[in-house]
Design a protein around this nucleic acid. Structure first.
Length: 482
RNA sequence: UCCUCCUUAGCUCAGUUGGUUAGAGCACAUCACUGUUAAUGAUGGGGUCCUCCGUUCAAGUCGGAGAGGGGGAGCCA
């Protein structure tokens, strides 16, 4: 058997001195022709391998370059140096893979995130991305743990869908028809009856509608899968391909929904704080150094770990849309005319408004409920007893410092007549959505759910400011490498 | 899609009112040193100044167009 190695994380967590070990990994630095900092991705901490002078051929030593992969056999010993408590005194060094020092792009120095973004296949080997992607993994695990512990069923909703009425954004078409000379029907339109599925299909923009179908049988379901939006969005918080978590719960109202979302977010953060504290500490330090470059007013004030701790330990602020508008209208920020966009009841809150509420006014996550019906999706439940012209829906958005909207959700409209009326008003074809309306026809129940953008959650927990740095291979307009 | 900023060595960046041979640190190579912590010291190699067009005696520097990237906005998660 080739692989009898010990992982560096395990080795560093208390292997007795004198133990014979095999370690494998990639060279981070090679100092003084004697000291190899070896990393295997299990942790940012390197194990120092000592290649004592005179014990190894120059031909081997020359091949120990940054990025090269090694198999080391040796003994765990107490370190004579100051930077580490233990090290491995090598008895054999095997070069598994050479790395041409002149051509290897990563150097033992700080690289810009922009540069590393273009070297996405190698950036995993850096401390920053090592930490980010270990945390991303932990968050994904914690998602499943949270819902499994609560008896939710993980429902796999389709990636390819024929439903185009969700209205969540521009869709990527899926077709096997030829680009040139696609078959046309009598009306001169492309004839999708000849397409692979016999109809027009797209990549999903949300699993919610299918999720609702599952919730109407299993009571509590969640989805966690890739989602695709063909929006021409060029921002630090949008991707064309991203992962979304969408729980859908029968018998829940809006308040249950908010409680679930808040518990969920707190669970994710607490899990990472428990299981990835060394990675968080690395990112915390990194962020603090980055913030030193910023002018005082742009600094966040709280360190990364402090911020996470604060979120876990404090309740999210809960306000209605109407209250939010009042707060904004009464703010000195508004009176000094510092908002670009006008504020009045009925507008959709702009980024600057959300940021003001979260970062200036409350300084913590805020849940805004009861948005005007006119600016929200058809499936959201109409609130009863609204003033005419000021109809609201049982929607809720969770706004987080630094990234804005992290969760969007609602209690769904379970009353068939009201739902149909709303769909008609919004020109959504009832015929195509007949399957969806069936849930309201046969044993409809109050239910609610939300969507959480997984990458935005990773951004929040890691403090990374650009969403392209929290997904292994980002897909954005005009960019689909790898 | 809109606004704005940027593009000089492998990387990070400097480059004066347009002026002669475009610099630094790191990286890389060679040598020295050898318990180093992004090792150190010496020496050396390394440039389509993003591309094209224009202004000028002269363009890395000024103007225009294009490409790529960053930040912000809209759309949203």
């Amino acid at each position: 058997m080739f692989n009898q190695r010990i992982k560096i994380k395990q080795l560093l967590s208390g292997t007795a001195t004198g133990t014979e070990v095999v370690v494998m990994g990639w060279v981070r630095t090679f100092r003084n022709n004697q000291f190899i900092a070896l990393n295997d991705g299990s942790t940012n901490a390197n194990i120092q391998i000592v290649a004592s002078l005179g014990e190894f051929d120059d031909a081997i030593l020359k091949r120990i370059t940054t990025g090269a992969s090694l198999k080391i056999t040796g003994t765990v010993v107490e370190s004579l140096g100051k930077g580490q408590t233990v090290e491995v005194k090598a008895t054999s060094i095997e070069i598994l893979g050479d790395s041409d020092a002149e051509k290897y792009p990563l150097q033992p120095k700080k690289h810009s995130l922009e540069f590393l973004r273009e070297k996405a296949h190698l950036r995993f080997r850096t401390n920053t991305f090592g930490s980010v992607f270990r945390i991303r993994h932990s968050l994904a695990f914690a998602v499943h743990q949270f819902f499994n512990d609560r008896g939710f069923l993980y429902l796999h909703t389709p990636i390819i869908t024929s439903s185009d009425a969700e209205g969540a954004g521009e869709m990527f078409r899926v077709t096997t028809l030829p680009l040139e000379g696609a078959p046309k029907n009598d009306a001169g339109e492309i004839d999708f009856t000849q397409d692979f599925f016999g109809k027009s299909t797209n990549l999903t923009v949300s699993g919610q509608l299918e999720g609702e179908l599952g919730a109407m049988a299993f009571s509590d379901i969640y989805t966690f899968g890739p989602t695709f939006r063909a929006e021409n969005s060029n921002t630090t918080r949008h991707l064309a391909e991203f992962w979304m978590i969408e729980p859908e719960v029968a018998f829940n109202d809006l308040e249950d929904n908010m409680n679930l979302a808040e518990d969920f977010i707190k669970h994710l953060i607490a899990y990472v704080m428990k299981n990835n504290i060394d990675d968080l500490q690395f990112l915390d330090t990194r962020l603090a150094e980055e913030e030193k470059q910023l002018p005082t007013e742009k600094r966040s004030g709280l360190g990364l770990i402090e911020k996470l701790k604060f979120v876990v330990e404090n309740g999210f602020e809960r306000i209605t849309y109407t209250e939010a508008i009042e707060i904004l209208l009464n703010s000195t920020h508004y009176k000094k005319k510092k908002f670009t966009y006008d504020i009045k009841w009925g507008i959709d809150l702009q980024s600057e408004h959300e940021r003001y509420l979260v970062e200036q006014h409350f300084k913590k996550p805020v849940i805004v409920t009861g948005y005007p019906a006119a600016i929200k999706a058809f499936y959201m439940r109409m609130n009863d007893g609204c003033e005419p012209g000021k109809e609201t829906v049982a929607a809720m958005d969770i706004l987080a410092p630094g990234i804005g909207e992290i969760v969007g959700g609602s209690q769904r409209e379970e009353r068939l007549e009201k739902l149909e009326a709303r769909m008609n008003a919004m020109h959504i074809p009832l015929q195509e959505m007949s399957y969806y309306l069936d849930t309201r026809r046969f044993g409809s129940v109050p239910h609610a759910g939300f969507g959480l953008g997984f990458e935005r959650m990773v951004q929040f927990v890691t403090g990374m400011t650009n969403i392209r740095d929290v997904i292994p291979f980002a897909r954005t307009p005009k960019n689909c490498e790898y």
